[in-house]
């Protein structure tokens, strides 16, 4: 199975405050994405997810697998994800190229990994294990990072490209993360984009950052900023339309606001949108 069968249109991240409104009014959404971990144990959330899947193409986006954790893959978490994916059969399954644990200790965040050849060997194994367990290819997302491993041997784009080549996984390109890294870490956006295999980019994320102390913080708490729209327009110009998600996870606005953001992304994909 290829890494995604989502339509190449704009969609929104569906979060708890909007579950009821979406199911009651069935607004025209291209597709929706939900966080996998909110549906791990079954019960009422999964019943709701089945209903959503009746009406919309659906993507399950993981925030807790941490498959860049070099010590060991989290096989318990992976087993839960396998059950969920088998039951829901979503159009896409994605994870982050990040780590979150070492031994028993977890930090529930998306922490940056060392971009080294040795780490690549280990993480490629974790990606393959994940895909073999799920019986399908996944999309891997680039990060917003606030610290960097001092001995990096390649950039994130090169690392992702090599993972794609070795494992057949796809890429979820978060344009906001790329922009935030450019501003915070001086990441060379052109070099990262040049490294990514265009055919493997199966999905795009857009979100709004907030201004921290001397850093932009990827809070998903704002409308998409102008600089990110400009970069998105450039990316779409390079690679053509892709399933594009508006993510909003903090200070979540009314559904109409999310849909208006999705419309802007759609206008850009349709060509010539002035967001």
């Amino acid at each position: 199975m290829t890494s995604t069968t989502l339509p190449a249109v704009a969609g929104i991240g569906l979060r708890a405050p909007h579950y009821r409104q979406v199911l009651d009014t069935l607004p025209p959404l291209g597709w929706v994405e939900l966080h996998s971990e909110n549906f791990f144990d079954g019960g009422m959330p999964v019943a709701m997810l089945h209903r959503v899947a009746e009406y919309y193409p659906l993507s399950l986006h993981g925030v807790g697998l941490g498959l860049g954790s070099l010590a060991a893959p989290d096989t318990g978490h992976l087993a839960s994800l396998k059950r969920l994916v088998a039951e829901i059969q979503p159009q896409a399954v994605s994870e982050h190229l990040s780590f979150n644990h070492s031994g028993q200790r977890f930090v529930n965040d998306l922490l940056p990994i060392p971009y080294t050849r040795a780490a690549l060997d280990v993480i490629a194994g974790h990606v393959s294990l994940t895909q073999d367990t799920l019986g399908r290819e996944i999309l891997l997302e680039n990060l917003s990072s606030y610290v960097e491993y001092p001995g990096n041997e390649m950039n994130e784009g090169e690392f992702l490209a090599e993972l794609t080549r070795r494992t057949g996984c796809g890429i979820l390109l978060d344009v906001n993360n790329l922009y935030v890294n450019q501003q915070n870490l001086g990441t060379d956006v052109d070099a990262v984009l040049a490294a990514l295999p265009i055919h493997a980019i199966g999905e795009i994320h857009l979100a709004g950052y907030s201004q921290g102390e001397g850093l932009l913080v990827d809070t998903h708490s704002m409308p998409v900023h102008d600089g990110v729209w400009a970069l998105y327009r450039r990316v779409i110009g390079m690679i053509g339309p892709r399933p594009t998600l508006i993510e909003w996870d903090l200070d979540i606005p009314p559904l109409d606001t999310l849909c208006a953001e999705a419309d802007k992304a759609q206008a850009i994909m349709n060509g010539g949108g002035h967001a």
Partner: peptide, 10 residues
């Protein structure tokens, strides 16, 4: 400490 990648069990 958090002992899982799934915050629902914390």
């Amino acid at each position: 400490p958090s002992l899982s990648g799934n915050l629902h069990v914390y």
